[in-house]
Every structure is written in structure tokens, then in C-alpha cells.
Amino acid sequence: MSILKKLFTAVKGGVNEVGEGIVDANAIRIFEQEIRDAQDALSEAKRSLTEVMAKEIQTSRAIKALEDDIAKHETYATQALDKDEESLALEIAGKIAELEQEKSEQQQILNTFSANVAKLKEQIKQAEKTIVENQRQLSMVKTTESVQKATMAVNDTMTSGDSAMASAKQSLERIKQRQMDRQDQLDAAQQLADESNDKSLHDKMREAGIGEDASKGADVLARIRAKQNK
């Protein structure tokens, strides 16, 4: 059964209570050991593979040398026949037969090596797949364990803090209120900034004698005199 399925069954069955492990620590250790064993086996298989591949190359090389030798002796045989050296040609032919026998033996060895290489490669692929798969499953178990422990830690903190009693709705209200307060503060600050901008503009305008506030003492006096004279 896959770990995820086990977890699912455990959660369904309510095993996922705080403090109760879904997969016991011992099982995790065994699982980790299995992964390590598989990794050892894998590196062993890889070492064997390089050895066999080296032998495969050596044998191929030997076959190639034999083929060259055969070709060379065939030329000798032709030359002997050309010179009517019938018995020498026969002797050379005998040598060729010998070489061919040797070549076919080497070929059989090569076939065995090639088959071994293919088999080892397949085994390595399988082992790698198994290791990755096991590591993925182990990571699920460990994450579940960490989350469980973290939940315990969090529960401890929350029950001792003030946020413990508040319902989600109350929390949301408080957050919204805080966000609104912050926005109001920002708005107020902006308004203040705007006003002080306005004020400094007015100050400058007054200095330059522009705008409504530009009336000066002299003007006021002139206005009062004008009233008296009426």
C-alpha cells in the first residue's frame, strides 16, 4: 500500500489525533535503512557495470584484431594460390579456420557481456526508480510528522495567547477594523499634507501681494477713511 493511501486511511480513521503518530518512528527508521541499502546496492551495481563494460570493450577489440588477422591471412592464401603453392595455401587456410574458431568463441563471450550490460543497466534503472519513489514517500511521512509536531507546538502557543479564544469571524472583523484604521490614518495624514501645501501656497501668494488675503494695513485705513467721509 502506498504511503499516501496509508496516510489517507489513517486520517479517515481518526488516527491523526494530536500526538499520535501515523507511522511510528521505528517504521521510518526501517524505511530509511531500506533506502540506504538500495543506494549501496545501486553503487555496487554501477561498479559491476563499469567492469563488465570494460570487458565488453576489450573483447570487441580482440574480435576486431582477429578479424584483421583473418583478412590478412586470406590475402596470404590468395597470394599462395596465385603462386600455385597449393600446400602452403592449405596451411594458411588451416590457420584461418583456427582464427575463425577463436573469433566465434570471443563473439560468444562478447554476447554474454552485452547481455550482462543490458541487464545491469535495467537493474540500475529500476533501483534508481525505487529509491526516488521511496524517498518521495518517506518525505510525505516526514512532512506529516513535522506538521503534526508543528501543530502541537502551535496549539501550545495559541492556547496560551489571546488569539486562542477569538473565532475566525471576530478575527476577520478585527483585521478589517485595523486595515480601516490604517487607511483612515493615511487619509488624515494626506489631508494634513494637502492642507499644509495649501497654506504654504497662500503664504507665498500673500508675500507676492496676490489673492484675497493681500489686503494691507494701508488699504484697510483707506477703507475706514472712506466710510468716515460719507
Binding site: S139, K142, T143, S146, V147, A150, V154, S163, A166, Q170, S171, L172, R174, I175, R178
Partner: peptide, 18 residues
């Protein structure tokens, strides 16, 4: 916003924010 704290945990493979 202490009503909705984020809890961060770390495992071998990942960092979980809950």
C-alpha cells in the same frame, strides 16, 4: 495582524508556511 499568524516550519525537503 496577530489574529492570523503564519507558522513556518522546515523539513528536509521543504519550507511550509501555514
Amino acid at each position: 495582524n496577530d489574529e492570523l499568524p503564519i507558522f513556518v516550519t522546515r523539513t528536509e525537503e521543504q519550507v511550509l508556511c501555514i
